[in-house]
Design a protein around this nucleic acid. Structure first.
Lengths: 345, 345
DNA sequence: CTGAAAGCGCTTACAG
DNA sequence: CTGAAAGCGCTTACAG
């Protein structure tokens, strides 16, 4: 019905210039309050909608942000990054910005092809959501636009990052296990895989160090190959009394495996996860885990990136977002578990 | 480094006009092959990237599609629509289009506020992904741009839709149960809730009709309230031998409930789901279910919508995408289940 | 085969 | 307080 109403159309109807209409609709100075009101009213009546493309062209801003997620983090069981993207979309709302999702294929990552949004100048900045290969990081560094790593970081790259405080959360979680009397604690995760898994491992290790518990290499259990595909977990001969898993999904698989071997959770061994995703409450018993604050991460990332867009020289470095331990039923006190052990046999 | 290289910059370096550069880079007629090649080469060397905003302004197209998902379909356990959105993003790639996600809040849906992408003229068309309220459908009808309902439809609205063939898939799935000897079959789902749940119910019903099995009202089990929140399922006194669930998640909950009441699945009763999502293989036994072809749905939706953008008069009506039955372990032959019953007691 | 001119719809100085 | 002019970087007729 109202086909492409422009500021000029409004201006002509009002008998003023389009400059005045622009100023009025943008609440700029230089137009009397009374005229402003009349212009806004007429604009509303005429069903005027701004042409942001023209605005963008003039200002040199697209008001779009590119969100790049590597394909390997987007399998059917992995909704975590999609959920982060969702929160990013919501966080962008209040700034008048929009998010454009780009799934980075294995192929493009290997070939170092930058996302099409880049070549199309579709966005004012980039969020790389999820760890990418070293060579691809170097490719991304060439992009002369504001960018931010979300949920991972790379010390070689001088790029700001926002991540959960994986190190500290895993440290606290392990401390909790030790407080519950555990001293034989394994870590489950490929510690060469991502910065998250590595840092969670180091938090676990710090807790052991502080409590003078020696680290046992045979209790660092690999859970995935270098492509990130889960592999069967080797349960060690000498069974630990607790397992710190790098994520809920692997904790879920571990519990299934332990049960199939005849071990009871948490009576025989305790298991903790990380993420507090669907798997945390799908596992029986429900997992004690760390809740990652997706909303806060998205907000922090957007806030930082938009500041970098307006002031390109701003540096944030490595920004950490705190997680929160969620206590559920997958951890037993060690004494209690010993008693159970006796009555069990 | 290469700050805002324009076609003019290339034109000046080459000693031609920017019109010629535009034609060359867009492979239009009117430039000799030899000159085209030289221009493309120089553009590459200079790191030229097109300014799509300027292109958009000239052409009156944004090359963006708005994807609107009601908030209630985006909970922590519901990644289905986000996965559809992901496939939409991928499908748009080949057309040079981009997707912009808008999560429609309860509030905005109630207040009939159209998404901001609409007011900002940010997109050339809309995909409404997931059932919206009747009044909101009417609001959406006012949008004078191409639009499409995805994964639901409304007969009162003259808006094209793309959905899984829920009716036929549920019909086939129920036929399969009957082939396995079942005749006491319940349906689980709020049949007034969404068109999907309703159509799956009707497919189930058609199968009963064809096999002259009377429909029992007491075997239509409600699973959610009007807001879509799951409620506790009432298991009927007289236990059916099979349950057709409207989705895998509810099948998962049903299996837990049946087990807690001492019934074995599939020995005592069979259960089938719909969607083939994470819950299908998280359930023990793994669920026989219908795999929804997300990729095909996304591709069909995009293809249809883009055609409507170039030819606004085109109508597609109700487009159905076939699903596929995935046979797993949650269904027993009726005879077999009777035998087990005997040996069990 | 090549290019000068016009225009898409805004906003930003600048002049009055 | 108000407006004429210029320009953002393309593409589309149209003229040569």
């Amino acid at each position: 019905m109202n086909k492409n109403i422009t500021m000029r159309d409004i201006a002509e109807k009002m008998g003023v210039s389009s400059v005045t209409v622009s100023k009025a609709l943008n609440d700029k100075e230089g137009v009397s309050e009374e005229l402003k009101e009349r212009i806004k009213l007429l604009a509303g009546e005429m069903g005027y909608r701004i042409n942001t493309v023209a605005k963008s062209m003039k200002e040199g801003l697209t008001y779009n942000i590119g969100v790049v997620i590597p394909e390997r983090f987007t399998g059917p069981a992995q909704s975590f990054y999609l959920r982060v993207y969702q929160e990013i979309s919501i966080a962008l709302e209040r700034y008048g910005y929009y998010g454009i999702l780009h799934i980075l294929t294995h192929e493009d990552e290997k070939q170092l092809n930058l996302p099409r949004v880049y070549y199309d100048r579709k966005v004012d900045g980039f969020i790389i959501l999820g760890q990418i290969s070293k060579p691809y990081i170097e490719a991304v560094e060439q992009i002369e636009q504001p960018k931010l790593f979300l949920d991972f970081y790379d010390e070689h790259a001088d790029i700001d990052s926002v991540t959960t405080d994986n190190f500290y959360c895993a440290y606290e979680l392990t401390n909790y296990l030790i407080q519950q009397g555990h001293r034989s604690i394994a870590y489950v995760g490929n510690i060469y895989s991502t910065s998250s898994i590595q840092d969670r491992y180091l938090g676990y290790y710090k807790s052991l160090l502080e409590h003078r518990i020696p680290l046992k290499e045979s209790w660092i259990l690999n859970d995935r190959d270098d492509e990130g595909s889960f592999i069967d977990i080797d349960i060690p001969e000498e069974l630990p009394t607790a397992f710190v898993c790098n994520c809920d999904q692997i904790a879920h698989l571990l519990v299934l495996k332990l049960k199939s071997l005849g071990h009871r959770v948490p009576e025989d061994c305790s298991v903790v996860g990380f993420d507090n995703d669907v798997f945390a409450t799908l596992t029986e018993p429900h997992l004690t885990t760390v809740e990652v604050d997706i909303e806060k991460m998205a907000q922090t990332a957007i806030h930082s990136l938009l500041r970098k867009i307006s002031s390109p020289e701003v540096r944030f470095g490595r920004v950490l977002v705190q997680g929160k331990i969620i206590y559920r039923e997958s951890v037993n006190e060690k004494n209690k578990s010993l008693q159970d052990e006796v009555s069990h046999h």
